[in-house]
């Protein structure tokens, strides 16, 4: 019986946790107003600090996570100490005594109230995959081609983007295009860097760029053909099975 009454009481206090703290510090509000009217800025400062830190302690208590009672007790100690020192003019030693009293008073007032575990830290962002990295590099190549006014480089970059778009839809085909990504993309990046550095395009460059564009197109075609073949096999297997089962 006594246990269930205590449990109910704890539930009630847990729901209202922290709301009462500003009440204890409420005389500091008229003290600040009177201090302002009387032109004593120390009273205003001490009262403001005291009441502000008390409201902060109440906020921390409302959160109700593990360790929050100790943080709130520390904030209440700071609030009481600063108000006693600045606003109440109690010298240097006495504010520490009052701060210690406020610390232990807060801890005792919220003893046995349940505290939840703090939320887990957010999961680290997933690192971008090879296709996303390659798409970023192609975007930089396209920008560089626009800056250089090189429509042929832009054409190759767009052809590569087409390959990467296909791979994004079918990432299981990535191993077949890994060589293309490493060799062709690296090569085109180096060429673009040289062109941006002011190099004059050699005579063979248009042929090479055309080859790169063509290779990208062929790779897309090959990937599509393999996909079609895989579908053909799937259809054949399904038809055979239906026939075997007599449908």
């Amino acid at each position: 019986m006594a246990d269930s009454v205590l449990k109910g009481w704890i539930g009630l206090r847990t729901r209202a946790r922290g709301f009462g703290l500003p009440f204890f510090a409420s005389p500091l509000i008229p003290a600040a107003l009177l201090g302002a009217l009387g032109g004593d800025e120390w009273i205003v400062l001490g009262s403001g600090l005291g009441f502000g830190l008390t409201v902060l302690a109440a906020r921390v208590l409302r959160r109700g996570q593990k360790g929050d009672t100790d943080i709130a007790a520390g904030l209440m100690a700071a609030a009481t100490g600063s108000a006693a020192w600045l606003a109440a003019g109690m010298g240097v030693v006495f504010p520490f005594v009052l701060a210690a009293g406020a610390f232990f008073g807060t801890r005792m007032s919220f003893q046995a109230l349940p505290e939840t575990a703090p939320p887990p830290p957010p999961a680290p962002p997933i690192p971008p995959g090879p296709i996303e990295l390659a798409l970023g590099r192609v975007a930089r190549l396209e920008d560089a081609a626009v800056r250089l006014n090189e429509p042929r480089v832009l054409g190759v970059a767009q052809a590569m983007r087409g390959v990467l778009d296909d791979l994004s839809e079918r990432p299981e085909r990535l191993p077949q295009a890994r060589r293309f990504l490493s060799v062709h993309l690296d090569g085109l990046e180096r060429i673009t860097e040289r062109l941006e550095g002011g190099a004059a395009p050699p005579e063979r460059l248009p042929v090479l760029l055309e080859d790169l564009s063509r290779t990208a197109g062929e790779l897309r075609e090959r990937l599509r053909r393999e996909e079609t073949q895989a579908l053909d096999i799937q259809v054949k297997v399904m038809s055979d099975r239906l026939r075997e089962e007599g449908y």
């Binding site: 204890f24 500091l28 009273i43 009262s47 005291g50 108000a83 606003a87 009052l98």
Partner: peptide
Amino acid sequence: TVWFTGMVAL
């Protein structure tokens, strides 16, 4: 502690 400090400040 807290209430007493507030009253003295008042």
